[in-house]
C-alpha cells in the first residue's frame, strides 16, 4: 500500500542523484568546478531554458504538449528588440507587451485545442511556424540592443552581489522566482490541482464537474506566458533579439521535464524535477566546456541517453507498482 505513493517520488530521487553525481564528478575532475561562479552561471545561463521548461511542465502534466516554445522565445526577443530600438518604445512597456502577446498566443492555441478538439501536437506545431514566421517579418536577422535598460540596469544594477567577485544575474533571479511561483500554483491552487486531474483522467475530471475547458485554455496561456518570459530573459541574456534563435528549445524543455520525472502521459510530476532536469542539461554542457577537447554535441548525446534512461525507469516503476497492486 505504501509503495505506489512512494513510487511517485522515486523518479525525483533518481533525478536528484544524477544531478548530485554529475556535480560531484565535475568537482573531482576539475579544480575550479566547485567555485561559486560555476554554480551561479549554471543557473543564470539556463534561466531562459528553465522558465520555458516550467511552462512545458504544466502542459505535459495536463497530458498535452507545446511545440511552439522555441519559436515564441525567438519571436519575443525580436519583438522587444524591434520595439525598443526601432520604435523607441519604453523597455518596460515593450516587455509587458511581449508577455501579453505571448499569453494571448498561448490562450488562442489552447482555445483551438479545447473548442475544436484538435490535437495539441498539431495546433502547437502550427503555432510554432506562425511565431517563427512573424518573428522574421518583424526583423529578418539578429538585432542588437543599445538601450541602457538592457545594457546597464538589467545586467548590472539588478544583479545581486554574493561576494565581491561574484554576483547573481537577473536572469537567474527570474528563473528562481518563476520556480517558486510555479510550485505554488501547482500545489497550492485549485487551478494547479486541476492540471494534475486533467492529465490523470480528463473524462473523470469532466464528470467530476471540474472546469476542464477553462483549465485547458489557461494551461496553454500559462505556457505562452512562460515562453514569452523566457524570451524576455533570453533578450536580457544576449542583449539582442534574434528571430532565428532557440530552434528546438522546446525539445530541450521537454527533455528537461522528462529527466525531471514527469510522466509524458500526464498527471504525475513535480516542478522541482524539471528544475533539476534543466540543471542536469546545463551541467553536462558545463562539464564538456571544462573538458575543452570534447565536441559540444556530446551534450545532446548524453541528454538523449538520459531521457531514454528516465523513460525506462518510469516504465519499470509503474509496472512494478501495478504488479504490487495485483
Amino acid at each position: 500500500m505504501k509503495f505506489p505513493l512512494a513510487s511517485r517520488y522515486l523518479p525525483l530521487l533518481a533525478t536528484a542523484l544524477v544531478l548530485a553525481g554529475l556535480y560531484v564528478a565535475g568537482c573531482v575532475s576539475f579544480d575550479n568546478f566547485s567555485s561559486l561562479r560555476v554554480a551561479v552561471n549554471l543557473i543564470g545561463d539556463n534561466g531562459f531554458l528553465g522558465i520555458a521548461a516550467i511552462g512545458a511542465t504544466f502542459v505535459i502534466l495536463s497530458g498535452g504538449i507545446d511545440l511552439s516554445v522555441g519559436a515564441v522565445v525567438a519571436f519575443t526577443s525580436i519583438l522587444i528588440a524591434s520595439l525598443v530600438e526601432d520604435h523607441s518604445v519604453n523597455p518596460l512597456a515593450a516587455i509587458a507587451a511581449a508577455l501579453i502577446v505571448g499569453s494571448l498566443f498561448g490562450a488562442a492555441m489552447g482555445s483551438l485545442i479545447q473548442w475544436f478538439e484538435l490535437p495539441p501536437f498539431l495546433v502547437t506545431l502550427a503555432g510554432m511556424f506562425l511565431a517563427r514566421g512573424v518573428g522574421f517579418m518583424i526583423h529578418p536577422q539578429s538585432h542588437g540592443i543599445q538601450n541602457d535598460f538592457f545594457l546597464q540596469t538589467v545586467s548590472e544594477r539588478l544583479s545581486l552581489p554574493l561576494n565581491n567577485r561574484v554576483s547573481f544575474p537577473f536572469t537567474g533571479t527570474c528563473f528562481v522566482v518563476m520556480f517558486v511561483l510555479a510550485t505554488f500554483v501547482a500545489h497550492y491552487t485549485r487551478f494547479g490541482r486541476y492540471i494534475y486531474a486533467l492529465g490523470g483522467d480528463e473524462q473523470s475530471a469532466r464528470l467530476m464537474g471540474l472546469p476542464v475547458a477553462r483549465t485547458k485554455v489557461l494551461i496553454y496561456a500559462l505556457s505562452g506566458f512562460c515562453s514569452a518570459l523566457a524570451g524576455v530573459v533570453y533578450t536580457f541574456y544576449t542583449q539582442s533579439g534574434d528571430p532565428a534563435s532557440c530552434v528546438g528549445l522546446e525539445l530541450d524543455a521537454i527533455a528537461a521535464v522528462v529527466i525531471g520525472g514527469t510522466l509524458l502521459s500526464g498527471g504525475v510530476g513535480f516542478l522541482a524535477g524539471t528544475v533539476m532536469g534543466v540543471l542536469i542539461l546545463g551541467l553536462i554542457q558545463t562539464l564538456i566546456t571544462f573538458k575543452g577537447d570534447l565536441n559540444s554535441w556530446w551534450t545532446r548525446i548524453v541528454a538523449g541517453m538520459l531521457v531514454f534512461l528516465f523513460i525506462l525507469l518510469q516504465n519499470v516503476i509503474s509496472s512494478a507498482s501495478k504488479r504490487l497492486r495485483g
Binding site: G200, Q203, S204, A205, M208, G267
Partner: peptide, 14 residues
C-alpha cells in the same frame, strides 16, 4: 470516475 494518481483526499475535495 476518479483521478488515479491523486490522493484520496484530493479526489474527494477536487
Amino acid at each position: 470516475n476518479l483521478i488515479p494518481h491523486l490522493s484520496v483526499a484530493e479526489n474527494i475535495c477536487l
